[in-house]
Amino acid sequence: MQNSYRTPLGRVRWLGSARSGVEDSWRMRLTALALIPLSVAFVVMLLSLLHRDYNGARAYLGEPLHAVLMLLFVLTGVYHTELGMRSVIVDYLGHHTREWALIANTCAAVALGLACAYAVLRIGFI
């Protein structure tokens, strides 16, 4: 009957919903909700930065409120983007392409988030 000593639960774990999928779904909605006011704040800042030169833009983003709002938008946005892109990848790609795409997605999201955070902090502190 059975060629393996592994339990049915052991074989299906990590292959689909095994009571761990709700976490991502919840975080997707949590970050989405937070991104509504943060995106509005971001667009307001973007339009304010549009006509500023180098020193003006640095002074604007150096203000604590603008820096914190930008950090919140970037980090929440990158988290949300990683989750969204992950669901797109698992829907359309298979086998090794899927695995490499998932690795690239997480790496790119972390790198972008870290780069933005570093830049905002550097503008604020130097």
Binding site: Y54, A57, R58, L61, M70, V74, G77, V78, T81, G84, M85, V88, A108, L112, A115, C116, Y118, A119, V120, R122, I123
Partner: peptide, 29 residues
């Protein structure tokens, strides 16, 4: 979905802007 994937490029553009601004006047130019 398409706008979601497109926003990934938007974040990359934002990262370029912030890093350029964190650099000197030449990188920002």
């Amino acid at each position: 979905r398409i706008t979601g994937v497109g926003l990934y490029i938007g974040v990359a553009l934002l990262a370029w802007f912030l890093l350029a601004l964190a650099g000197d006047a030449t990188t920002f130019a």
